[in-house]
Design a protein around this nucleic acid. Structure first.
Lengths: 93, 93
DNA sequence: ACTAAATATGAATAGCTGTTCATATGAACG
DNA sequence: CGTTCATATGAACAGCTATTCATATTTAGT
């Protein structure tokens, strides 16, 4: 399975999932409802995120709770977004 | 064409090109030789990097000189690398 | 043990992406 | 203008990736 960080972050839905569970842990169903994505799709993406080490999981009862493994993950997303905006501004000059 | 920053950075050869021209501007041939990649491949990648605004170019004579548009680009690559290493370490615990 | 809930998995597939090859474009110079 | 150097472009293709659908697995409760 893919372990490249950038490849893993290059998918919008995976980034949305990361933002979604960035503040608090969430189970698969909640993520699925929150983002309006199919449960199986969320599961597939979570697997990749997990393989990359970007998220951790914890089983409690029937549910599997996922969370972002490190705060630097979101920080990286943020600075990438900032850079992206900056690049757009420069192009419109 | 693709304008997503992460998608653009997700390719290893494009990242290699960015590192290559991170310190000084370089023409296509030099990049090509330096990284041992086909000229046309480098050209294709540079086009994507340019579309994203990650690089700028300047024609001088026959040659086209490319450089990284902002120092934050390399900074982002660096912090991503750091995070990647950190994730690997955590997984081997 | 049976059932229901929650999640994971696998196969199938359509669309995308990186690479190569061949060729076109442009710029300098005799 | 013709030639050469430097780069860009386009078509073609193989391999990858995201998504969906169907189904399996796991866990808890009765």
């Amino acid at each position: 399975m893919n372990e490249d960080l950038f490849k893993c972050l290059s998918d919008l839905n995976r980034r949305r999932i990361l933002y979604c569970i960035g503040r608090q842990e969430m189970c698969v169903n909640s993520i699925s409802e929150c983002l309006e994505l199919e449960q199986s799709l969320v599961s597939h993406h979570l697997k990749e995120l997990y393989t990359c080490g970007l998220v951790t999981r914890e089983r409690r009862g029937k549910k599997n709770y996922y969370r972002v493994s490190q705060k630097q993950v979101i920080a990286l997303l943020e600075s990438a977004k900032e850079l992206g905006d900056s690049l757009k501004v420069c192009k419109s000059d």
